[in-house]
Design a protein around this nucleic acid. Sequence first.
DNA 1: CCTAGCTAAGAGAGCGCTCTCTCACCTACT
DNA 2: AGTAGGTGAGAGAGCGCTCTCTTAGCTAGG
Lengths: 338, 338
Amino acid sequence: MQDRRPTIEDVARVAGVSRATASRVINNGRGTSAEARSRVHQAVDRLGYRPNPAARMLALGRTDVIDLVAVGFEADSARFGTNPYLSRVVAGALAALAGTDTHLRVRLLAEGAAHRSIDEIARTTTQGAILVNVPPPLATRFHDRCERVVSLGATADRVPAVEARNAQGAHAAVTHLHDLGRRRIAAVHGPAGNTCAASRRVGHLDAIRATGLPDITGDGQFRREAGYRATARLIATRPDIDAVFAASDLMAAGAIQALTAAGRRVPDDVSVVGFDDSVIATAVNPPMTTVRLPVEEMAAAATRTLLDGGAAARWRLVFPVDLVVRASAAGAAPAGTT
Amino acid sequence: MQDRRPTIEDVARVAGVSRATASRVINNGRGTSAEARSRVHQAVDRLGYRPNPAARMLALGRTDVIDLVAVGFEADSARFGTNPYLSRVVAGALAALAGTDTHLRVRLLAEGAAHRSIDEIARTTTQGAILVNVPPPLATRFHDRCERVVSLGATADRVPAVEARNAQGAHAAVTHLHDLGRRRIAAVHGPAGNTCAASRRVGHLDAIRATGLPDITGDGQFRREAGYRATARLIATRPDIDAVFAASDLMAAGAIQALTAAGRRVPDDVSVVGFDDSVIATAVNPPMTTVRLPVEEMAAAATRTLLDGGAAARWRLVFPVDLVVRASAAGAAPAGTT
DNA sequence: CCTAGCTAAGAGAGCGCTCTCTCACCTACT
DNA sequence: AGTAGGTGAGAGAGCGCTCTCTTAGCTAGG
């Protein structure tokens, strides 16, 4: 394709000036004559010169990349595309980076081979890394090798993290269902190993205990299929459930499908509340009552922290969450309505 | 945070070897004694040395970044998080990059200020750029400045592109609805300026003409709200429509909500077919019949092309699309069923 | 015993760029 | 007329790394 990419040397030669002058012109530098400027610009156009970013970075001593490291979103690569969470993270990070000349590099690690990759990333990252869904041992390992790191969601103790009041959100969701008159509230939780899922469990249990409701719990991965299966199982065991609190919108979407398949109407027979307020929540029918996780803001905060030089070990930034009331949760419909 | 990041020079000094030897050891190089190896590794650990990637790239003459450039997904930054398409693109690109030491850099351009940014990106990209939703004039401009570029979806003629048989997909969708016995099929199209949307319009019109059906058409942005509004308007004008073909899953989700709000049942009264087969299609209730766009594969193909050195002007790679039959489209329910 | 042939490791030349230092030249003020 | 001050431009020193070239120090073979 190209013999050899033209360098600034070539530009200087063609323009009949020195390398320094060429550089000055190219970087909008002042202190150049109109004559020199036009000659250099012409040379640039003629040669199709584009500066080598690596050389530039090296000379400037500025290394301007933040890595977004996510684990396990792509057992098959399609899985990630299916995940409404990570795209919000990217959006938030990018928003924080706008106006900066720092770039965002995205890395996805297969759940299995993550150990090896994590070392390599820690070795090559510069401005720092944002960890998404990275399990505690791996996060610690990363932190050992590179301190410039912030986890999205709590992970290992030592690793700086931006987190949300997950427990509070779950509590609010269950309380909301209780306030609507629901008394047999099933919970469909996320994977046991996940720290966010764990917090949501805690909030749910607190609310259950505070209101004296029965504990009807299922769980699975944070995915639609898992939500569907867990809900189907729950209905089979406890056909009288009148509400479902799911630990993610995707699971809630699965729950709604399972309920429909079992002949229950949402929200008339069974109310459903999700968690995340992702695009799924607004797209389903009926629109979903859910707990809004400010993912974009959290990612932006993590990014800004990295931009500012990182955070100390054990640093935490905690975001509030809000219950967003839509149509999937309501009081029971009057009996006999079909 | 750090006085000065340690360099390989420091490592060499601490280890009591030359820079060359340190480099050899660090890069798993052969030709080093066990003695030297252990000393260097110790020094690396002690200093927390991490090689400067810019210097490395410069010395190796290898520049290993592919840019993913998307326009207009973030009028507000949250918009992008809401877009199920771009995350699939990222997934596909990343899948193609796995095993390579090329990285993916994601860039989002606000629709307004894109002109300036596009030049900067074209100037600094190395391995090349994947264009997503970049309008023809901008894409051409990019191509003028940097030939290493592939657009996802057709854009300007000259710009290499990976595209899908959008027209064929739309045709298949409409034909499917016709086969189910639907005769008043409304179409909710995407934005007029968008090339994909245009192709889908063509396919729809072809099918309409071929089957002699009436043309009932609305349009808007590729978003849920637009789908809702357009459908609501259509129902108001033509209360007798018995099917909706939407140009995206998100619009179809909006259509389903609008139909429900208008007292129509899906699929009994009105069948709905979407386009994309994004996560939305499986999450909604009932699960959506839709046209599967192999976004991940397309993005992977674009990435591989870039990895292989790019493509000639006007290059095209065309992917087939498939109708995925789920529950949102069916024959009319027997009259009188409630 | 001398030299060919090997391995380990140092010296040093870039990679492409930016930036400081320096100089030549010109204007303007005393 | 002499010097201060300003401006445009070249020379050259790095930035941190890798890699080739070269040398030192061995072992082995004639």
